Simulated scan of single mutants.
Amino acid sequence: MALMVLGLLLFLGVHSTRVFADDWRSAMVQRLGLLQWKGLYSLLSILGFVLIVIGFKQARQESLVLWTSPGWMRHVTALLMILAMVLFVAAYIPGNWFKARFHHPQALSVKTWAVAHLLAVGVLADVVLFGAFLAWAVVVFIAARRRDRANHTVYAPANPIGTTAALATGLAAWSIFALLLHGPLIGVRPLGY
């Protein structure tokens, strides 16, 4: 569990610099240059992610079961994951309703992903992992919305093409991951087959 927690601290810490140390982040970008900052940021993110994956795999071997969800909850989780995937891709597709309405769909995606998995799995390692990401996403979303208000940020309006592209891409991503990749990569078949 310690390795996973270390990975979470590193990964989520790096992804929180804008929230908790924006002045330091700006100074580092100024000092290193944008390209080198992004390289360092990426390197630390990848290291944190690798530690999370290895630590999670180890922690699940010995973790305590805190609760058992009913079998039908996996269907609720699958539906929430469709929404999570749509929100995730909406952050990168211009002119979609999700970005126009929520402004930070990727943070909402992480929240939805975490809640969906917390509903389905009550193993201690999972609760620590998804709980940490949920708490982080809540804080990041609030901070981003505050920053938008302070900067009077205006988001582009939605259009049918952008919204359709976000929905189609999100559904395709969910289908590929849930039906083909989740089992081999994570070791759990979310829909049972």
Results as ranks from 00 to 15, higher is better:
W67V: 04
W67F: 15
T68K: 14
T68L: 14
S69R: 09
S69T: 10
P70H: 07
M73P: 08
M73K: 02
M73Q: 12
M73C: 10
R74E: 08
H75Y: 15
H75V: 07
A78K: 10
L79F: 14
L79Q: 09
L80M: 15
L80W: 08
M81E: 14
I82A: 03
I82T: 05
I82P: 04
L83M: 13
L83A: 15
A84N: 04
A84Y: 00
A84R: 03
M85G: 03
M85Y: 14
V86N: 05
L87A: 07
L87T: 03
F88Q: 09
V89H: 09
V89M: 11
A90D: 07
A91W: 13
A91I: 02
Y92H: 15
Y92F: 15
Y92N: 11
N96K: 12
N96M: 12
W97H: 09
K99F: 05
A100D: 13
A100H: 13
A100V: 13
R101L: 14
F102L: 15
F102Q: 08
H104S: 08
P105E: 11
P105N: 10
A107Q: 11
A107F: 15
A107M: 11
L108D: 00
S109Q: 10
S109T: 00
V110T: 11
K111P: 01
K111I: 13
T112V: 13
T112W: 06
W113P: 01
V115R: 03
A116I: 09
A116M: 12
H117Q: 08
L118P: 06
L118I: 10
L119M: 11
A120N: 14
V121M: 07
V121S: 09
V123A: 09
A125I: 06
D126L: 09
D126S: 15
V128S: 06
V128L: 14
V128W: 09
F130P: 05
F130V: 01
F130R: 04
F133V: 13
L134G: 03
L134A: 07
L134I: 01
A135W: 08
A135I: 13
A137E: 02
V138N: 00
V138A: 05
V139A: 12
V140I: 12
V140D: 15
F141H: 14
I142K: 12
A143T: 04
A144D: 13
R146C: 06
R146T: 01
D148R: 05
R149H: 03
R149Y: 02
R149G: 01
A150R: 14
A150F: 03
H152V: 10
H152S: 11
H152F: 08
V154N: 04
V154D: 10
Y155L: 14
Y155D: 04
A158I: 02
A158L: 08
N159K: 00
N159Q: 00
P160R: 10
P160W: 02
P160K: 01
I161F: 08
I161S: 03
G162M: 07
G162H: 01
T163P: 02
T163R: 07
T163K: 04
T163E: 08
T163Y: 07
A166I: 04
L167D: 01
L167W: 14
L167E: 00
T169F: 08
T169P: 00
T169M: 14
